[in-house]
Computed example of a mutant assay.
Amino acid sequence: MERVLRERKYSITGLFKHIGAGNKIHVPLDCYTANSISTECTRQNRYAGCDPMNNKFATTKKEKTGYITIIQRY
């Protein structure tokens, strides 16, 4: 399931709690910075104890223009 945020509803750490396994969320770059989302993604993967080649969370900016996409794999 894909979700698109239009405004700043959640904190940066709160975004990762609202995704769900196998889903993705599109976050607007005018409300959140790409660097802060990427840093929190790395932090969440470390908390989950993921293997570096099999991360739980991933980010991409190529899927939707003006948004950064957070993907939860499992």
Rank of each mutant, 00 (worst) to 15 (best):
M1V: 12
M1E: 15
E2Q: 15
E2P: 08
R3I: 15
R3K: 15
V4W: 13
L5Q: 09
E7Q: 13
E7C: 13
K9H: 13
Y10W: 14
I12L: 11
I12Y: 09
T13M: 09
G14I: 08
L15T: 10
L15E: 12
F16I: 09
F16E: 08
F16A: 05
F16N: 05
H18L: 09
H18K: 10
G20S: 12
A21R: 04
A21N: 07
K24C: 00
I25A: 02
H26W: 04
P28G: 02
P28F: 03
L29Q: 00
L29V: 02
D30C: 03
C31V: 03
Y32C: 00
A34P: 03
N35Y: 01
T39M: 06
E40P: 00
C41M: 05
T42A: 14
R43V: 04
R43H: 06
Q44F: 07
A48M: 14
A48E: 15
D51E: 14
D51G: 11
P52H: 13
M53R: 15
N54H: 13
N55K: 14
F57A: 00
A58Q: 11
T59V: 05
K61G: 12
K61M: 14
K64W: 05
K64Y: 09
G66N: 02
G66H: 00
Y67P: 05
Y67C: 09
Y67I: 08
T69A: 04
I71Y: 04
R73Y: 05
Y74W: 06
